[in-house]
Simulated assay, not measured.
Amino acid sequence: MRFRHADAIWSAHPLLAAGALHADGIDGTADVRVRVEEYTSRARERLAGGSESQFPEVLAWRRAFARMGLRPTQYRCASESLLRRLRKEGTLPRIHPVVDLCNAISVAYAVPVAVLDADRITGPLLEVRPAHGDEEYTTFDGRTEHPAPGEVTYADSAGRAHARRWTSRQSGHSAVGDRTRRILVVTEALHDGAADTVARTLETIARELAAHWPVTPETTLIDALDREFTLEETPQVS
Score class of each variant (00 low, 15 high):
Ala108Thr: 06
Gln74Asn: 07
Tyr109Ala: 00
Leu82Glu: 12
Leu47Tyr: 06
Glu80Trp: 14
Glu188Thr: 10
Val107Leu: 10
Arg120Tyr: 03
Gly142Pro: 05
Asp178Tyr: 09
Trp61Thr: 06
Arg165Ile: 14
Val107Arg: 04
Arg42Cys: 09
Val176Leu: 08
His173Ser: 11
Val98Ala: 15
Gly177Phe: 09
Thr91Tyr: 04
Ala104Gln: 07
Leu59Arg: 14
Arg179Ala: 15
Arg169Trp: 10
Glu52His: 11
Leu126His: 06
Arg46Val: 01
Asp178Leu: 01
Ser106His: 02
Ser81Leu: 14
Glu145Val: 11
Ile95Cys: 06
Asp141Val: 07
Leu126Ala: 13
Ala175Tyr: 01
Phe140Cys: 06
Glu57Trp: 00
Arg42Gly: 00
His173Ala: 15
Ile121Asp: 01
Arg71Pro: 07
Ala118Met: 11
Ala78Arg: 07
Trp61Ala: 01
Arg46Ser: 04
Asp156Asn: 07
Val176Glu: 04
Ser171Asp: 04
Met68Glu: 14
Pro130Met: 11
Ala131Tyr: 06
Pro124Arg: 07
Ala155Lys: 05
Ala148Lys: 06
Arg42Leu: 15
Met68Trp: 13
Leu125Cys: 01
Val99Lys: 00
His132Asn: 08
Ala110Ile: 12
His146Met: 11
Met68Ile: 08
Arg164Gly: 06
Arg71Cys: 11
Glu135Tyr: 06
Val58Lys: 00
Asp100Val: 14
Ile95Val: 15
Trp166Glu: 04
Arg165His: 13
Gly90Ser: 09
Tyr154Gly: 07
Ala158Gly: 13
Thr167Val: 15
Thr73Gly: 00
Glu52Val: 03
Ala78Tyr: 12
His173Val: 10
Ile121His: 02
Ile105Arg: 02
Thr153Tyr: 04
Phe65Ile: 12
Leu92Trp: 00
Arg67Leu: 14
Ala60Thr: 03
Ser174Thr: 13
Leu82Pro: 02
Ala104Met: 04
Val128Phe: 13
His146Thr: 10
Pro124Asp: 10
Val152Asn: 01
Val152Gln: 01
Arg120Leu: 15
Ala110Gly: 08
Ala118Phe: 14
Met68Arg: 09
Asp119Glu: 05
Val99Ser: 03
Val152Pro: 09
Ser81His: 11
Leu82Cys: 05
Thr144Arg: 05
Val99Asp: 07
Phe55Glu: 04
Ser168His: 13
Gly142Trp: 10
Asp141Trp: 05
Glu45Gln: 13
Gly133Leu: 09
Glu45Arg: 03
Glu145Tyr: 10
Arg143Val: 12
Ala148Met: 09
His146Gln: 08
Asp119Val: 03
Pro97Cys: 11
Leu59Lys: 12
Ala189Ser: 09
Asp100Leu: 08
Ala175Thr: 11
Arg120Thr: 02
Glu145Asp: 05
His162Asn: 02
Arg160Lys: 10
Asp100Glu: 12
Ala104Asp: 03
Ala163Ser: 15
Gly142Asn: 06
Gly49Ala: 10
Leu101Asp: 13
Pro124Asn: 09
Ala104Cys: 13
Ile121Ser: 01
Gly123Cys: 11
Pro149Val: 10
Trp166Leu: 11
Pro149Asp: 03
Ala158Ser: 14
Gly172Ser: 09
Glu89Arg: 15
Tyr75Gly: 03
Ala131Phe: 12
Glu45Lys: 14
Glu151Leu: 06
Ala64Trp: 05
Val176Trp: 09
Arg44Glu: 08
Pro124Cys: 13
His146Lys: 05
Leu125Lys: 05
Arg94Leu: 03
Arg129His: 08
Leu82Ala: 04
Val185Gly: 01
Pro130Glu: 06
Arg182Ala: 02
